[in-house]
Amino acid sequence: MNTLYLEQILFAGRGSSLVVLILLVVFFFIGLRLAKMGRPPKMRRLPAMDAIDEAIGRAAEMGKPALYTPGITGSLASEQGPQMVASITILSYVAEGCARYDVPLIVDFAQGDAIPLMDETLRLAYLKQGKPEKYDPKMLNYFPGQSPMVTGILGHLQRLRPAAFFMIGGLYYESVVIGEAANFVGAMTIGGTANTHQLPFIIAVCDYVLIGEEIYAASAYLSKDPYQIATIAGEDWIKFVLMALLLLGFILEPLGIKYISSFLRW
C-alpha cells in the first residue's frame, strides 16, 4: 500500500486529523523513551486526586462508608465509554484505600457491560491489599437506567450517610441532584467529568473536581510510576503544536496566506 494509494483512499477533510494523530503517537513513544532513559517529566498536582486519600481517611475515622458512582455512559463501546474505563481506574484506587482502612464501599452504576470489569477491578484491589475475603460482589449495585440510578444513589445517601462520595465519569443532570444530596448528608464530595456541559454544576456542588482531561490522566498520576507519567508528556507537547498552529493561523490568515486553513480542511 504505497503513499499515493493511501492519499487516494483518504476521506476528504480527515487528513489533518490523521497528521495530528500520527504526531500524538510519535510524542507518546518519545515520552516513553525518555522515561526509560530515566528522564520522566514532572506532573502538576491534581488536588482532587490528592483529596481521595483524605476522603477515605475521613470515612475511616467516622466509621462511615464511601459511595462511588461512575455515572452513566451508554455502553463501553460508545463514545462515552472511555470515561467509564477512566472512572474504573480511579475506582480501583478508591477500592484499595477502602480495603486498606476497612471502609465499606458501595458502587452505584447503570452500565451492564461494565460489570465484569468492575467486578474484577474491585476483586484485584482487595487482593492487592491482602484482604480478598473483604470483597463482596454485593458492593456493586446495578440500576437499569439514569433515573433509577439517581433514585438508588439518593436512597443510599439518605440511608447510609456516607462520609465520602465520589462521582467521576459520564455525568448528566444527576450530577447536581446527587452532588447536592451528598452535601446535604455531610459527605465530602469529589467529582469529575469530561462532559463539559456538566462541569459548572459539578464545580458548584463538589468539594474537589477533576476537570475534563484530568480524569484520563488520573491513573498515571495516582500510580506515581514514571513510565505511566511519561505517557502524558506527549499530550502536552501536542498541545504546544496545536497552539503554534492556532497562532500561525491567527497571523497568516489575515495576510491572505491560507496554508493553515487549507491544511485543516485537507
Binding site: G13, E79, Q80, Y172, Y173, N195, H197
Partner: peptide, 14 residues
C-alpha cells in the same frame, strides 16, 4: 438534553 448535537455535527456536518 445531552451530546446528540455533537454526534450530528461530527457524523453529518463534518
Amino acid at each position: 438534553t445531552g451530546d446528540y448535537g455533537d454526534y450530528y455535527v461530527r457524523q453529518w456536518r463534518m
